[in-house]
C-alpha cells in the first residue's frame, strides 16, 4: 500500500507537470496579441502594462515565465483578459453548479445503468431485454446538445413541467435546485446509462458461466445469494472503475455541452466562453484544475478497484 502510494504520487506529479507544460505552451503558440497588453485591459497605462510584463515574466526566458505563471495559478492571482476579474473567484462561484451536475448525473447513471443492466441480463432474450436494448441504443446515439435542446424546449418552454435552464443554489432552495437540475442530469446521464447497462448485461451473462458461480450453486446457496454475492459482485468491478473514470472526465470538462445547453453557468460553460473569446488565463487555470481532478480521481479509482478486486496488488 505504501509502495503504491509513493508510486502513484510520483506518476501524478509527472502527469501534472506534463499537463502544466502543455497548457502553458498555449500562451506561447496561440496567435494573439501581447499577453501583457491584454491582461492589463483596454484602458491601461504603459506603466501598468510594464508591471504586468515583469510580474508574469513575459520579458524573461520561457522557463522563468513558466515558473511565474504556475506560481500565479497556485496563488489564485490570475485574472481574465475580458473582465480583468480573478479567475479563481469565478471558478469558486461556478464550481457548485458543476459539482451538482456531475455528482447528480453520476449517481443517476450508475444507479440506472446497474438497474437496467441487471434487468436486461435477468430477462436475457425476453421482451424486457429487447426493449431495454433498443432504448439503450437510442440513448447512446442521442447527442447531449440535441437531447438537451429537445428537453428544454418541450418539457421546459412548452409544457413548463420543469424549468428550462439556469441554476438555483442548493443552499438557497433545495427543491428548486432539484427541479432545475433534473433535466440537465437526465440529458448528461442518458448516454452513460445506455453504455453501462449494455456492459453490465454482457458481463453478467459471461460471469454466470464462470466456474465459481457453479461452485456457489453447488454449495447450496439460494439463487438470490448466488446472483447478488457472486455474479453481481464480480460483474460490478469493471462498471465501478469505469464509473470513476467517466465521472472524472465529466468533471474535467465532459459536461461543457450540458452546462451550455441549460445555461447553468458552471465551470464548463465559463471555460467554453473563455475559449470563444480567446481568453487564455481562465482556460489555463481551468485546464490545470480539471486535469488535476482527473489525475486525482483516477488514483482514487485505482484504490477502489484494488479494494473491489483482491487480485489487483497495490
Amino acid at each position: 500500500m505504501a509502495r503504491f502510494a509513493v508510486r502513484r504520487l510520483a506518476s501524478m506529479v509527472a502527469v501534472m507537470f506534463a499537463i502544466s507544460i502543455l497548457t502553458f505552451l498555449l500562451f506561447q503558440v496561440l496567435p494573439n496579441s501581447d499577453p501583457s497588453t491584454r491582461l492589463a485591459g483596454r484602458t491601461a497605462s504603459p506603466t501598468q502594462i510594464a508591471k504586468i510584463r515583469s510580474d508574469w515574466g513575459f520579458d524573461k526566458p520561457i522557463y522563468v515565465q513558466y515558473i511565474k505563471t504556475m506560481g500565479k495559478i497556485l496563488n489564485g492571482t490570475v485574472t481574465s483578459y475580458q473582465q480583468q476579474l480573478p479567475v479563481e473567484d469565478q471558478i469558486r462561484q461556478d464550481l457548485p453548479t458543476t459539482l451538482s451536475l456531475a455528482i447528480g448525473a453520476g449517481v443517476i447513471w450508475l444507479a440506472l445503468g446497474i438497474l437496467f443492466g441487471v434487468l436486461s441480463a435477468w430477462r436475457a432474450g425476453r421482451w424486457l431485454d429487447r426493449g431495454l436494448t433498443v432504448l439503450s441504443l437510442v440513448g447512446v446515439s442521442m447527442p447531449v446538445f440535441f437531447l438537451g435542446a429537445v428537453l428544454s424546449y418541450y418539457i421546459g418552454d412548452k409544457a413548463r413541467i420543469l424549468p428550462a435552464g439556469d441554476y438555483v443554489a442548493l443552499t438557497s432552495d433545495p427543491w428548486q435546485w432539484f427541479k432545475h437540475m433534473l433535466m440537465p442530469w437526465f440529458a448528461l446521464s442518458v448516454l452513460f446509462i445506455g453504455v453501462y447497462s449494455r456492459i453490465l448485461r454482457s458481463t453478467i451473462l459471461d460471469t454466470i458461466n464462470d466456474d465459481y458461480v457453479r461452485t456457489a450453486r453447488a454449495k447450496g446457496l439460494s439463487e438470490r445469494q448466488v446472483m447478488i454475492r457472486h455474479v453481481l459482485r464480480n460483474s460490478l468491478i469493471p462498471i465501478v472503475s469505469l464509473w470513476g473514470l467517466d465521472f472524472a472526465s465529466v468533471l474535467g470538462g465532459g459536461a461543457i455541452l450540458t452546462e451550455t445547453v441549460f445555461n447553468l453557468h458552471g465551470v464548463g460553460q465559463y471555460a467554453a466562453q473563455s475559449v470563444e473569446g480567446l481568453d487564455i488565463p481562465p482556460v489555463l487555470v481551468i485546464t490545470m484544475f480539471g486535469a488535476f481532478a482527473v489525475v486525482l480521481l483516477s488514483a482514487v479509482v485505482d484504490i477502489v478497484y484494488a479494494a473491489l478486486d483482491p487480485r489487483i496488488r497495490l
Binding site: D210, D211, Y212, R214, T215, A216, A218, H230, R233, N234, I237, L308, D309, P310, R311
Partner: peptide
C-alpha cells in the same frame, strides 16, 4: 468438487 481449482473459487 470440480475439475479446475484455479477457477472454482470466487476471486473476490
Amino acid at each position: 468438487i470440480f475439475q479446475d481449482p484455479m477457477s472454482s473459487l470466487d476471486p473476490v
